[in-house]
Amino acid sequence: MQIQVKCSCGEEDCPEWAIVELQGVIEAQASFQHRLQNLQIGQLCRPSSQEVYTLTIGYHELTGSKVTLKKPLVVLKKVKLMDVDQENGNSNNSSNVELQVVGIIRHKILFKTRPKAITSKPQLEFKERASTAASTSPN
């Protein structure tokens, strides 16, 4: 079978997506684990005019920078198509899929250091596990 890769955005105006990348995983508190939607993860901050960023998650702070990807990434979206071949007797119930280019990624904000604990800003109660993985808490 053949899957077409479609692109409606053209060369110049392909929407740019972003990646914020950090080491390890973020674990939400158990009560939120299955309804992460809309939950706040953290605060991304650019403290100066340099390309240095901080990401504050709960009482952890990560420091990172904006990097340009060596090779761009495209974001493809799998789209199931309605079977238009039905009248040709061609429909053996194989779902027709096409891939659509929905975005391009050229940069990411990368946090490759381990988190630093913030002690001076006890925004949240200390409930999270001590691990390299930072945790998310609802505000």
Partner: peptide, 8 residues
């Protein structure tokens, strides 16, 4: 790593 994908 965790790569958070953010659409426009």
């Amino acid at each position: 790593n965790s790569a958070f994908l953010i659409p426009p």
